[in-house]
């Protein structure tokens, strides 16, 4: 997904706040502007278009009902929306163990570059995160990225990487602590 300009961010925040006031037009505009981004996230996590459509619907129904809980001091509207969609997708993956999270190829996913993100490099938060991820050991970085994109549990990640569960937990937890130190200096 392309990065958002500060003006876009303000506009999305405003639309989400108006959605919280039950403004259906603002909600529709919010959908128009963000549904492709959220659908991309859902498809990536679910690995199945139909499931992703269902998740996207649930996500936007939740957006309408819970827009009042959005707090612009805690996050941007886009982060909040992506989070709602990811949470719906991950909840569904947990409820339906038959829907295996997408198998991601360890070698192609990741480790160095920002991948195919158009314009992601221009997003300051993304650059900061990328710089901090670059300081991690390869396995830590891979596992964290795999967790984010695949919505997999520790068990599933350990299975895929063919390492003991304890090893996977330790990679990710040490990576997260290091990441936190780097992101909140």
């Amino acid at each position: 997904m392309p990065a958002t300009s500060p003006a876009d961010r303000d506009e999305l925040n405003r639309l989400l706040q108006r959605t919280a006031e039950e403004d259906q037009r603002a909600f529709e505009e919010l959908y128009r502007r963000t549904s492709s981004r959220l659908f991309g996230v859902c498809v990536r996590l679910m690995g199945d278009r139909e499931e992703a459509e269902e998740v996207l619907q649930e996500a936007f129904v939740t957006v309408w009902k819970r827009a009042r809980s959005f707090d612009a001091k805690l996050s941007s509207a886009l982060t909040w929306l992506v989070t709602v969609a990811r949470n719906k997708a991950i909840d569904r993956l947990r409820q339906r163990p038959d829907l295996r999270p997408v198998e991601v190829d360890w070698e192609t996913l990741v480790d160095d570059g920002p991948g195919p993100a158009h314009g992601a490099e221009s997003d300051e938060e993304y650059r900061h995160l990328q710089a901090c991820l670059a300081e991690l050991e390869t396995q830590q970085r891979r596992s964290i990225r795999e967790a984010f994109f695949g919505g997999a549990t520790y068990n599933e990640l350990a299975e895929r990487a063919k390492v003991p569960l304890g090893t996977m937990k330790s990679w990710i937890r040490r990576g997260l602590l290091q990441l936190r130190a780097c992101l909140n200096p």
């Binding site: 997904m1 659908f39 991309g40 314009g119 938060e125």
Partner: peptide, 11 residues
């Protein structure tokens, strides 16, 4: 921000 790496798909 990692989600920026995911390609948009129009539903």
């Amino acid at each position: 921000p990692l989600a920026l790496e995911i390609t948009d798909i129009a539903p």
